[in-house]
């Protein structure tokens, strides 16, 4: 029902000349988070991540990502299986995401056949050495920040809202600007700033495609402007609504990857 009203709302707003008063920053960010992190009931994708240091040297990670929404609660499950680099093949990563509190994460280390639960700060810990934090990969909560709609403009030929978000609690950034597609609701660009208002990181959605009727960012880049490091992520074989079962997202399958989905 929520989706329906939202869709209706989008239809209306897309059809009418918009004034900023029509949507609050909060609502825009809420819609954007839903589209970016929750599209479809489930998702399966092959993800290639390139970590590029300032000298242009590259480390690659190749993984299968499985994602499942648990109803409308906002609870989510992620399963990540690493195919490459060869010496870490079989390493797998499980996330149970709860809105409003820190996620649970487990890792399986095949060389020592150990599953460990990782207790780490989502907001500042790097995801597999990339420029993305855990939070960037699995999403933050709309309540974590206060959002203000600054303006509407065009970005790369797309109509966008520009929203400023400031974290309510402690975070590694002081301010974030988001350029959110007014029709597709995906963030096309994000800029993070530190306390001196110096740019920290920049996210860009470099290629957006529609997959199973869902607008999906197929190529994205996160640049660390302070150390010159960047991470490029390519999504391939994106499928929504493939029928993932909740049981896959468990310690058993962490140790023994579900062959049906991980190939």
């Amino acid at each position: 029902m929520k989706i329906f009203w939202s869709a209706l709302f989008v239809l209306m707003t897309a059809a009418l000349p918009l004034s900023a008063a029509d949507l609050s920053g909060n609502e825009i960010v809420q819609r954007s988070l839903e589209t970016f992190y929750y599209s479809g009931g489930d998702l399966r994708a092959r993800v290639n991540m390139k970590l590029i240091n300032p000298q242009g040297q590259v480390r690659e990670r190749e993984m299968t990502m499985l994602r499942l929404n648990l109803g409308q609660s906002g609870d989510q499950r992620y399963y990540l299986y690493f195919h490459a680099p060869a010496d870490v093949k079989g390493t797998a990563f499980l996330v149970w995401k709860y809105p409003g509190k820190d996620s649970d994460r487990w890792i399986y280390i095949p060389a020592v056949k150990l599953v460990k639960r990782i207790a780490a700060d989502d907001k500042r810990s790097s995801f597999v050495g990339s420029d993305f934090t855990y939070e960037d990969v699995s999403g933050r909560n709309v309540e974590d920040e206060t959002h203000t709609l600054l303006r509407q403009e065009a970005l790369g030929g797309r109509p966008v809202y520009v929203v400023e978000s400031r974290p309510k609690g402690v975070a590694d950034y002081a301010r974030r600007l988001s350029w959110i597609d007014r029709e597709r609701w995906l963030p096309l660009k994000e800029e993070y700033f530190d306390g001196h208002n110096e740019p920290l990181r920049t996210f860009t959605a470099d290629k957006v495609e529609q997959k199973n009727d869902h607008w999906t960012v197929m190529l994205r880049t996160m640049r660390n402007l302070q150390n010159g490091h960047r991470t490029e992520v390519v999504f391939r074989d994106v499928e929504y609504g493939v029928g993932l079962k909740q049981e896959i997202f468990s310690e058993r399958y962490l140790r023994d990857a579900p062959a049906q989905w991980v190939r």
Partner: peptide, 28 residues
């Protein structure tokens, strides 16, 4: 085992500031 070491370092990069590792080993 080399694979064990590789997986430990991989784990380390998932859990700490990546720069800690960069300071002691090069990219390749």
């Amino acid at each position: 085992e080399a694979d064990t070491i590789a997986q430990y370092l991989f784990l380390f990069s998932m859990s700490a500031k990546p720069s800690d590792l960069d300071n002691v080993v090069d990219y390749p």
